[in-house]
């Protein structure tokens, strides 16, 4: 049974900002379908009363003093930018 339609693959790809070629939709879609089918095996387990684990070490809300410390310089930050202008990263226009 197909669990994920091509339309869904395109939708998920769009959410993930991936532009897939048509053959990729086919190929990756069918592999994704296999993996999702395998994942449904988890339903064999009754987990109604089980708490989820997002993290194994019980560390939360680590706080520190809000002190001003040196960070990367503007020059360093811009070093890897694909395009820049006037000390800022240049991007394609955001507004139509």
């Amino acid at each position: 049974m197909e669990r994920i339609s091509k339309e869904q693959v395109r939708h998920v790809a769009d959410l993930a900002r991936l532009q897939l070629q048509e053959e990729e939709v086919e190929h990756l879609g069918s592999q994704l379908d296999d993996i999702i089918s395998a994942a449904e095996r988890l339903n064999e387990l009754d987990t109604v009363n089980i708490k989820p684990t997002s993290h194994v070490v019980d560390v939360r809300n680590v706080m520190r003093e809000d002190e001003v410390k040196p960070s990367l310089s503007q020059e360093d930050v811009l070093k890897n930018a694909p395009a820049q202008q006037d000390g800022q990263i240049k991007v394609p226009s955001v507004l139509e």
Binding site: R17, Q19, V77, N80, A81, P82, I89, P92, S93, E96
Partner: peptide, 20 residues
């Protein structure tokens, strides 16, 4: 946008998608 390879598209979203 900030680092790595950029493949310029027609607009911002297309740029993200093409680069990825």
């Amino acid at each position: 946008i900030r680092y790595g390879i950029r493949s310029e598209g027609e607009n911002l979203i297309e740029t993200y998608k093409q680069s990825r």
